[in-house]
Amino acid sequence: MTDHPSRAGASPFRQLSRRSVLAGATASAVVPVTAMNGVPAAAAPAKRGDTRRITMYAEELPNGLIGYGTSPGEATVPGPVLEMWEGDTLEIELVNNTDRKLSIHPHGVDYDVDSDGTPLNASVNEPGQRRTYVWHSHGPYKAKGNRWMPGSAGYWHYHDHAMGTPHGTEGINKGLYGALIVRRKGDVLPDRRFTVVFNGMTINNRTAPDAPLFRARLGERVEFVAIGQGDLFHTFHMHAHRWTDNRTGMLEGPHDTSPSIDNKDLNPGSSFGFQVIAGDGVGPGAWMYHCHVQFHSDQGMAGIFLVLNEDGSVPEGAQAALDRYRDQG
């Protein structure tokens, strides 16, 4: 299951119930959608070494936003999570259904100048135009001089690079961005996945009390992809949950000395990801995540990670915490 991106900016903090609390949690498409290793279809990438072709649509949304989607009328902010295994090739046909020039530009993967997504290389979509962008990935390899070069695996992102300026500043401000994950053989897949984008003074172009509300059941493996956009410098902090400061966010064995952290810089153009077990050692409840630059959190850069009981019911005190969050926003 995936994150719950915004289409209309409506507040998520309506009265919660046992039946409704997980509703809408899969609104953002994940590409591809094939099942693997018993993980729900929306959480599984395709087989390694595949060439896959998808169509994405750039569309205008309410409140002046513009988003990417994998079907007409389904654009969201952030856009869909795109996944690859190291060695995969992803061919994206982007359909520009707006009246503005735009593009799609990735971080962390390989591409030629025709798929750069910049006006510099005339790699853009004019209004109404279809254009195919090709992204490749690779595994670690031994290079000349007895050097080992890293593979593409990591938590990356994609964004517009053409609207408003040659750097896509207006497109990014309006919501043209999303997560790109490249996995390595053996990586553990999550039960749920959430995308958190600090863009200017917003989270996914929203602020408290309408910042994204992420939900998971106690004990589920949850993956967060954190992305920085805009002009400001931030730090990402998660209450009660920690992760390992390495590629995956999880220790690779008992002798892995990667530090355990719960706060990390999230600056323009940067990204990282991690997995946690929801409520592990702390239990269910309404747990805050936010920018730890104090005046940023005070001005609305704070949201809620709601850990439900194992049966999906709302834990005692969580609704009251959500109400206080809403009132303080």
Rank of each mutant, 00 (worst) to 15 (best):
S6Y: 11
A8D: 14
A8S: 14
A10I: 15
S11C: 11
F13S: 00
R14P: 00
R14V: 13
Q15L: 01
L16E: 09
R18C: 02
R19M: 12
V21I: 08
A23F: 12
A25K: 13
T26S: 08
A27M: 15
P32Q: 01
P32M: 07
T34D: 09
T34Y: 08
T34Q: 12
M36F: 06
N37D: 15
N37W: 02
V39F: 00
A42G: 08
A44W: 05
K47I: 10
R48T: 07
G49C: 09
T51V: 13
R52G: 00
R53F: 08
I54S: 02
T55V: 15
T55I: 10
P62G: 15
N63W: 04
L65W: 14
G67R: 06
Y68G: 04
G69F: 06
S71M: 08
S71Y: 03
S71P: 05
P72A: 14
P72V: 14
G73S: 13
A75C: 07
V77P: 10
L82P: 01
M84G: 01
M84F: 01
E86Y: 03
E86A: 11
D88M: 02
D88Y: 04
I92S: 06
V95C: 11
K101F: 07
S103I: 04
H105V: 11
P106F: 05
P106W: 04
G108A: 09
D110Y: 07
Y111L: 11
D112H: 07
V113I: 14
S115T: 09
L120E: 12
L120M: 13
L120G: 12
N121T: 12
A122T: 05
A122N: 15
S123E: 04
N125M: 10
E126I: 05
P127H: 06
R130V: 01
R130C: 06
T132Y: 09
T132N: 04
Y133G: 03
W135M: 09
H138T: 06
